[in-house]
């Protein structure tokens, strides 16, 4: 169950990506891409994120996960292909020296947050 650890890493990434004037409490949506090769269960990752988001100061944040299919390139014949099953054999030349182009890794791609108070209209209220 490495999803909990990954959820903690997502929170850290969000925190260090926020502009200085945007508090974590303003975050409403966090989007990540997860490679299919990563053996991450999206439902478990979402569950883990929801379990820690309150204590991590972003209680309103919703995690949206996009799974990225595995794509490979054959190092022998340069053919590019997608795979549904974990068979890393080039369908063009039947060799197995295959490089994974996408479908491995977890990437934070977008954060959606409410505008910081007083900055919606470009000025600061002192009242």
């Amino acid at each position: 169950m490495h999803e909990l650890y990954i959820a903690e890493c997502i929170v850290k990434s969000v925190n260090s990506s926020l502009p200085r004037n945007v508090a974590p409490t303003l975050v409403t949506q966090v989007r990540v891409q997860v490679g299919q090769l990563d053996a991450v269960v999206p439902e478990t990752l979402k569950f883990s994120f929801d379990a820690i988001k309150q204590s991590c100061g972003m209680p309103r944040a919703e995690l949206l996960i996009k799974e990225i299919a595995v794509r490979c390139r054959c190092r022998d014949c340069a053919h590019e292909f997608g795979i549904d099953l974990p068979v890393f054999i080039c369908p063009a030349c039947n060799r197995g020296d295959v490089e994974v182009l996408q479908g491995r890794g977890i990437t934070l791609t977008r954060i959606i947050a409410d505008e910081p108070e007083g900055e919606t209209h470009g000025n600061t209220s002192y009242s």
Partner: peptide, 14 residues
């Protein structure tokens, strides 16, 4: 507001 980022989530771990 939308904050686009492309960031490896395991950056700190790596």
């Amino acid at each position: 507001m939308e904050i686009p980022v492309i960031r490896d989530v395991l950056e700190e771990s790596n």
